[in-house]
Computed example of a mutant assay.
Amino acid sequence: LEQKIQSGSIKLIYLTPLHQYPTTVTLPIARRMAVYQLAEKYSIPIVEDDYDHEFHYRCQPLAPMASNDPQQLVIYLSTFSKIMFPGARIGILAVNKTLAKAVAEYRMIISHKGNALMQLALAKWMEEGGFERHLKRITRIYMARRENAIKCLAQHNLFDFICPDGGMALWVKLKSTSINTSKLAALARHKGIYIQHEKQYHTVPQSNRNHYLRIGFASIPERKFNEGLSILVKLINTKAQSLS
């Protein structure tokens, strides 16, 4: 990263440190501090996208980098779309006072009319305690679905993965390196199953090894997840030759 910065090609650092997208890995404190120190050294702002902060199951989530930002370098983003529903389209942006005015003016250029009705409804829901109750309920549901997904994947000797502390998906490696996950995803799509694969996330095509899948569990009831995984496993076992 420092070599890239010194080359003059880095103007902004974008991070998803709590649950890195797409791998769901949590960036340790030591590495967060190392990135922050580089940003401070070269006066580069950091965008911290904390898109699913609430869904951390094993322990209390690490505090956002923005909560310890003495140089005011961090621009903090979060969203209600993951907590409520995608159509909510309400997000949060926390910036320092100097930047706040410029951001507000730019927002007016994009659209001078915010969704006031949705914002007022959300505020009222929070005031009445409904938001907190919903958050507790949905976290329990997602945690149960996560445990079910881990259990189901572990039953088959086809996948390697590390259980993440939180998030809404699993980053899964196929044990068979001969199977191309791009081809597998295409076959699965014909069976009504949508899964994301490693190739979709590489900006440098040569880096793609076609070994990984990103399998979501949060939006799918356990029974449906199990059915979908069974179809995926069958495809791997019966179509292995054509997937290489």
Rank of each mutant, 00 (worst) to 15 (best):
V95T: 04
K234W: 13
E222D: 12
I46G: 06
T26W: 02
S78P: 03
A185H: 02
L235E: 03
L93S: 09
A149M: 00
C163I: 14
F225M: 03
G114S: 09
Y201S: 02
R137C: 08
A116G: 01
F131K: 01
L117G: 02
E128R: 11
E227H: 09
S244V: 07
G87N: 12
L158W: 11
F55G: 05
E2K: 12
R140N: 14
K4I: 11
S7A: 09
S178W: 02
A123K: 09
Y76S: 06
M168V: 14
I193S: 05
L158T: 12
L15F: 01
H134T: 07
V25Y: 15
I195V: 15
R209S: 12
G87H: 12
S182H: 11
I141H: 04
L122M: 02
V172M: 08
N157L: 14
Q20R: 15
F161Q: 05
T16W: 05
F55M: 10
G114F: 04
L187N: 03
T139I: 06
S111P: 09
Q241F: 07
S67Q: 12
T181N: 05
L62T: 07
M108A: 09
T26R: 13
K183I: 00
K113M: 06
G129H: 02
Q119T: 04
S7N: 09
A34H: 13
P28W: 05
K11E: 13
H211W: 12
E40Q: 08
V25C: 11
K175C: 11
I5D: 05
A94K: 07
E198K: 00
L170M: 03
L232A: 02
L235P: 00
L235M: 08
A88N: 07
F159Y: 08
T238I: 04
N226H: 08
K82Y: 12
P70T: 00
M33N: 14
I46H: 01
T79C: 06
V35S: 09
L243F: 03
L73V: 00
Q155C: 13
Q206C: 12
I231K: 10
P22N: 01
Y51R: 04
T16C: 09
K151I: 06
I83D: 08
P17C: 00
Q72K: 11
P205E: 04
I10M: 04
V233D: 04
N226L: 04
A100Q: 15
T181C: 05
H190E: 14
K234N: 15
K11T: 10
N68H: 14
R214W: 00
S219T: 09
Q200L: 15
N208G: 10
P45I: 02
N157G: 15
P22H: 01
S81Y: 08
M118A: 07
I195R: 06
N180K: 03
A240L: 09
I110E: 14
W171H: 11
P17Y: 01
